[in-house]
Design a protein around this nucleic acid. Structure first.
Length: 206
DNA sequence: GGCCCGATCGTCT
DNA sequence: GACGATCGGGCCA
């Protein structure tokens, strides 16, 4: 790992229920620190929890287990990256423990280091459009299917410490209207003071 | 093998 | 606010 990279959070951080990890990952740094390569970091400002086989919005709902989502069934602290809508990748953090598949979707970050690289990849000027959505941040960080299943407790891709946000708000998750009652659960966690949210917070619980 | 749809984004109105 | 892009995955036959 390059000396300029901060140390990764330990596996214990991830080995907790997804809603706890989703809340606590706000303010943490997302770090991509390739062996030789450009260091990219961003402060997480939006995350969603997917709570396991009972969660109708989760890929592991009702025990669905395929090659695609296999990593959700493994130990905490690994990356679950999947391809969606024919053009986007999403980054998830596997949480909880083996036998309790669950994950946290990282939905938005504020760029800290590597803004210019992100802007070049995204094709937009530095600003919220760089990373204010799950597909956008994966493009900015160049996270793809090759990152699926990798260990988040070491380089190149991991979370590092960062200051907790002053405020935290909870809302319903985005894009899961099909999930019945589970669509209404307040499992999206945001830093309402950030300008880099994928959607503005109109209402929500603190 | 066929069909439907998605944890989105960008563009247009 | 609406819609098209674009393609792998999931499910059924």
């Amino acid at each position: 790992m390059e000396p300029r990279c901060p140390p990764p959070l330990p596996r214990e951080f991830y080995a907790r229920p997804a809603d706890v990890v989703a809340r606590e990952c706000l303010g943490k740094q997302l770090v991509l620190c390739p062996e030789p390569g450009t260091v990219l970091t961003g402060r997480i400002v939006e995350a969603e929890a997917y709570l396991g086989v009972r969660d109708r919005a989760a890929h592991c709902y009702a025990g669905r287990r395929t090659k695609r989502n296999e990593v959700m069934y493994g130990p905490a602290g690994f990356a679950y990256v999947f391809f969606i809508y024919g053009m986007h990748y999403h980054l998830n953090l596997v949480t909880d423990g083996p036998g309790r598949p669950s994950a946290v979707l990282v939905r938005a970050v504020e760029p800290l280091r590597g803004r210019d690289i992100m802007a070049e990849r995204r094709g937009v000027a530095p600003g919220p459009l760089l990373t204010n959505g799950p597909g956008k941040l994966c493009q900015a960080f160049a996270i793809g299917i090759e990152h699926n299943g990798i260990d988040l407790c070491r380089s190149p891709l991991y979370l590092a410490a960062g200051p907790a946000p002053r405020h935290i708000r909870q809302t319903a998750r985005i894009g899961v209207d099909y999930a019945g009652n589970w669509a209404k659960r307040l499992l999206r966690f945001v830093d309402p003071d950030s300008n880099f949210l994928s959607r503005k917070v109109v209402s929500g619980r603190r």
